[in-house]
Design a binder for these strands. Structure first.
Lengths: 158, 158
DNA sequence: CAAATAGTTTAACCATGGCTAACAATTATT
DNA sequence: AATAATTGTTAGCCATGGTTAAACTATTTG
């Protein structure tokens, strides 16, 4: 369907029963996933804080806790981490705010999230399902794939 | 804990700058992702063991370690867990084998993995990227989306 | 057959991200 | 203003999934 630059597909378009990828490539796949996992949660928190600020004007720990379905203690601990990472500023009993860097991360995450979500809907996935899938998928979609998803969505939007 | 967010929420499908999903739905999204993470690694190991058995006839800890880019100690520990979970059988210093249940999990994972991978390629994603993305995405794609991906791939396969 | 090498396991450690329970501070109610 | 309720923090616990280093087993080879 896509007449975007067709990548030069390797000679072997492998089917399921095919050879394993070479060790280094295989290893790199798993490494990429592990690295994604490290930043995933951080990004989720930052993205949510950004969303809360945008829509509610403030981001309180209690809201984060209920939206993430996690205890307040967990959120509190996480906020300390985000603070150490220079992503948020927080004064006790006050709303959180994002630093410059945190804001950038939130924007990037939200953009990525939206692209995936809209793509899934354009594909024909039901809204509720699309939201759940997007939440999980967003951290594992490369920029290359993201670009393709975006073009696809634009094209298939009536 | 109680939810003091009362603003009326507009109907679902709107664009990025829009209202947050209702708390329960939002919470469920994150919960689903957390649950996926719990089984993800297990499935990756089992899937890899299945692949090694299929292609190499045996699955040694050393192979798993190098393909996962992880230390042998980590693999050893993980194998113990898989054992406790009734997914593999292992005798010390011998090749691993999958139990009935392990085999089923491996098959399911591989099928899911293949659907995502083929879908990405059909979309126009380059092979190397598709492999990396598929590895990360496979555990976060619902059955509904999976079915849609499969149909898409069949249709767009030239 | 003994020794070297390769493979496997164990022990001890670390960071992460959950949890509960107890406490502290703020805000709301009466 | 006093008290109640909500919100936030801290401390201590647990499981997971990594790590290195050392010990043990199996296999290969001189």
């Amino acid at each position: 369907m896509s007449d975007h630059e067709q990548p030069p597909l390797p000679p072997t378009s492998r089917l399921s029963g095919d050879a394993l990828p070479p060790v280094e490539q295989h290893a790199q796949q798993y490494e990429t996933v592990r690295n994604a996992h490290e930043t995933e949660l951080i990004e989720d928190y930052v993205e949510l804080i950004g969303d809360l600020l945008r829509h509610r004007g403030e981001a309180r720990a209690a809201d984060i806790a209920s939206r993430m379905a996690v205890s307040q203690a967990t959120v509190s601990k996480m906020i300390r981490r985000l603070n150490e990472l220079g992503l948020v500023t927080s004064r006790p009993y006050r709303s959180l705010f994002l630093t410059e860097e945190g804001h950038k991360m939130a924007e990037t995450s939200r953009a990525r999230h939206d692209i995936v979500l809209h793509f899934l809907r354009a594909l024909g996935v039901r809204d509720t399902t699309a939201r759940i899938d997007a939440e999980g998928m967003e951290h594992h979609v490369s920029d290359e794939t993201l670009a393709i998803m975006q073009r696809f969505t634009e094209k298939h939007q009536s």
